[in-house]
Nucleic acid binder design. Sequence first.
DNA 1: TACCAGGAGAAAA
DNA 2: TTTTCTCATGGT
Length: 222
Amino acid sequence: MSQHSIPTFEATKLRTIFGFLLGSYGPQYWWPGGTPFEIMVGAILTQNASWSNVEQGLARLCSRTPLEAEAILSLSSDELAECLRPVGYFNLKSQRLQAFCRAYLKARGLDGLRTLETGELRRFLLRIHGIGPETADDMLLYAFDRPVFVVDAYTRRIFQRLGVLTGSEGYETIRHGVETALGQDVGLFNEYHALIVRHGKEVCRIRPLCTQCRLRESCPWT
DNA sequence: TACCAGGAGAAAA
DNA sequence: TTTTCTCATGGT
């Protein structure tokens, strides 16, 4: 399947998977924590990092300065990196977070960004250095309540095991395919991504059979 | 001791 | 255009 061909995702299958996850884990009440700005900061910090590390970094940052764009930019990149040390990639994320804060203020903050149509807002976010498709979609869905399906490594893994994906599909192909199949449902996308992450953490990351997965008797893909 | 986590961008092939 | 490399702490 090439990046440019549009696969047909079975809505029934996608909803069956969702129902299984929701029945197994219940609502996840994402995003964990805070204001839209905090959610956007968290989305940057959690790139290829565990949320527990992000929480430690956020706590250090909040103990140093208010969690606001102006305050974050008032720190030197080294000072910010030191706050973010527990997150990992702290030098990288210090620069990415400040790049985001500059763009955020230039766009007149939350009020300015909220006036943008979803596609326009997505393009704005993707132009910021350090914000790729998954981070942008996390922000769109969880900070702006826009109907966007977030694709992450867990999504690819689970959908591939279940035969929804072949493994060669690109990010936009998967996102567009799921959105087309399920319709523009913010609540559904919010819960679906959160449940996929929850299950991804439960199921062994390496072995196909996970002895720690509490669903191992009924889980259809382990 | 290894391995990898709610990725993204640059460099190399 | 596609693949590989780099960034880095903390938990298991």
